[in-house]
């Protein structure tokens, strides 16, 4: 089997592709892409009520965070000095931070992506991508985009409600350029999340059982993406190490941009590094898939 090219697949019969063939293939790919999108949208809408309810539930832990951080700040004030921020974050910033990381995570989290890929490899479903003129990564990306679009459509209500109720915690809308950078970093958070997890999923070509590895990744992701606390709180060396990892761009970075914690040259630099990570993982996922498929052997029907 020929290794998959950037957007497509080897042409049948092994003949060289002409310009016409390429155009035809492109159109076919796009059509497949849209079908994948539509299937996924329909699939997700089946359980919409359950879905909206669980989205609203997901905000419940924020309630405990509101009280926890209030207590933390109260504790700080008892020792005098009247310090009212932790590493530049006020109490309101903390609450806004948690709400915004939920939004970042709505873009960057990819439930079941890596485990799905490894499962497909293990049980041989991956063969269908080799036989059918569908590129696995493109298909999964389309599927994921659809999944997310439906998610946003349903979750917009609960999100808007909670953000409206908590509007007092927010410092207000950032300037248009910052807002643009924020949106860009969210989109890149989605791409980074997708290709990072896809890369991890491709490890399944080499090791059959990667459940524990995925768990370790999830653990690190939860702690080091900034989902649990603003990464600025990490002291000294820890902060430097975490700052060098790509995980922070999944939750912390977009949020910090919105809250104005990164600005000027840091902001521009951060967006560039995020883009570089996205490109890096697109490449890695592609290379890993190409190599993996070369190793892969499927038997039977």
């Amino acid at each position: 089997m020929r290794a998959a090219s950037a957007w497509g697949h080897g042409l049948p019969g092994g003949r060289e592709a002409s310009a016409g063939d390429v155009a035809e293939t492109m159109v076919a790919s796009l059509r497949i892409w849209f079908v994948a999108l539509r299937i996924s949208v329909e699939e997700r809408l089946v359980y919409r009520a359950d879905f909206a309810l669980s989205t609203l539930m997901r905000f419940l832990p924020i309630v405990t965070q509101i009280f926890l951080w209030w207590a933390v700040f109260e504790g700080i004030q008892t020792v005098g000095g009247g310090r009212e921020t932790i590493r530049g974050y006020s109490y309101n910033d903390f609450i806004a931070y948690y709400l915004l990381t939920m939004l970042s995570r709505a873009f960057s989290s990819m439930p079941g992506l890596a485990s799905g890929i490894t499962r497909d490899i293990r049980d041989g479903t991956v063969k269908k991508y080799l036989i059918q003129p569908v590129d696995m990564l493109s298909f999964l990306l389309a599927y994921r985009v659809a999944h997310k679009l439906v998610y946003y459509a349903v979750a917009a209500g609960p999100f808007a409600l909670v953000f409206f109720l908590c509007r007092g915690y927010f410092p207000g809308w950032p300037d248009p350029p910052v807002l643009a950078a924020y949106v860009a970093s969210l989109v890149m958070a989605f791409l980074l999340g997708f290709f990072l997890e896809a890369t991890i999923g491709m490890i399944g070509f080499w090791f059959l059982e990667v459940r524990s590895l995925l768990f370790v990744y999830m653990l690190f992701n939860f702690f080091l993406s900034g989902h649990m606390f603003p990464l600025d709180m990490l002291p000294g060396m820890w902060g430097d190490v975490v700052g060098a990892l790509p995980l922070q761009y999944l939750a912390y970075f977009p949020t910090a941009v919105f809250l104005g914690k990164v600005s000027g040259a840091d902001l521009a630099g951060g967006v560039c590094i995020q883009l570089a990570w996205v490109v890096f993982f697109i490449t890695t996922a592609r290379v890993a898939m190409a190599r993996g498929l070369r190793r892969y052997s499927g038997y039977g029907g």
Partner: peptide, 15 residues
């Protein structure tokens, strides 16, 4: 680790 981090900044939860 998270709570250890919190208690780096505050001596107590609440006054």
């Amino acid at each position: 680790a998270f709570y250890t981090l919190i208690f780096r900044y505050t001596p107590m939860l609440g006054a």
